[in-house]
Design a protein around this nucleic acid. Sequence first.
DNA 1: ATTTGAGTAATGAATATTCATTATTGATTC
DNA 2: GAATCAATAATGAATATTCATTACTCAAAT
Lengths: 196, 196
Amino acid sequence: MPRPSKEQVAENIRNAVVRATAAKGISGVSMADVAKEAKVSAGTLYLHFDNKTDMLQQTYLHIKRAFYASLTASMTAATSAEKIRQLWVGMFAFVSADPRGFLFIDNTGAFEILTAEQAAEAQIMQEDIRQILADAISDGTLADLPLDVVTTLLTAPALLMARSSVMQDRTFSRAELELTFDRVWLSISASPTNPH
Amino acid sequence: MPRPSKEQVAENIRNAVVRATAAKGISGVSMADVAKEAKVSAGTLYLHFDNKTDMLQQTYLHIKRAFYASLTASMTAATSAEKIRQLWVGMFAFVSADPRGFLFIDNTGAFEILTAEQAAEAQIMQEDIRQILADAISDGTLADLPLDVVTTLLTAPALLMARSSVMQDRTFSRAELELTFDRVWLSISASPTNPH
DNA sequence: ATTTGAGTAATGAATATTCATTATTGATTC
DNA sequence: GAATCAATAATGAATATTCATTACTCAAAT
């Protein structure tokens, strides 16, 4: 049986970081916690990451990039309404595939663990999404709300669903996602009609 | 009973560094070794030094400065011969007072533990002494020997005596020092007569 | 004289990290 | 196929460092 590849080991560790951090918190998690969760020795963590901070940073960035990729996976839409719908679909695809990862980046975002360079990268990803929402407000698709409010309304259900996924090990049907999106759409659209 | 002053604690630690390093070597000594020798906790070491390297550096520099001060304590001599004699007296005063410290700086000198800035300071101290010896060669007091040879001839007895002091817990009489200096003087002077 | 409380220092358990040793894999040789 | 060996990765004991807690001192208040 061949050894797991270096990337497989790294992924195992990243998943362990996410799980251990969920249990202990970003401030409370130790290298020993992660090593135990990953079923490797603590010394092995240092073969993959420079130090504890690097491990947390790289894990965050890896998941953030995957999240962003999911959000923008097929951004082929022409109208703002359809773009926002695709964002929503992409977001929930990610939440379904990696609810723990989603919670990790959400919880970790409030802590300043990133270097300036890394923070700039995360900011650029964020700006793309905000631009789509800002355009939708400008062109009259969305109601004239502050961007942060719109973001909250779109994201909050994802957060709740991710938590349900993890705590109760449940998944959401396509119908549930559609219904939820419809209700959210009512809350953010300039003219509250069904987007499809 | 008042607490020992911060300087007293620092000195205790420095002495412990010297003793522990004599036993384990500069590469082999650990913080736990030093803490045990000093009869303090390992955490206490970090109240006085930034880290292990800093502790070694500061200890080295402290002893080196004391050594230099001893060498140049009363540099009032007019002639080169008398200057060299005063160096010798100062060196042995130091060896008598702190044989372990002398061995520590001698042993540690070969390891590159100093920062560039600290090394420059040590170099300046060294240069002063070398200048006195170079002057003595120039003015015909000393034989025309390479400086390093002169330094070795002057220093080697001190090294041996420091070792005897520590290993056999013995001290050297003034007569022994005088006799030794007379023999060394014969080996380095331009005209081998007694300097006094 | 006694008590109180603030400030400082020391501790040692916990945590981060290192590194000599061990384990494993795959390529090569027989 | 078995044996050997070099390269690589993982281990876990040892070591460096941190930090919450405890201990201690001394000045001020009573």
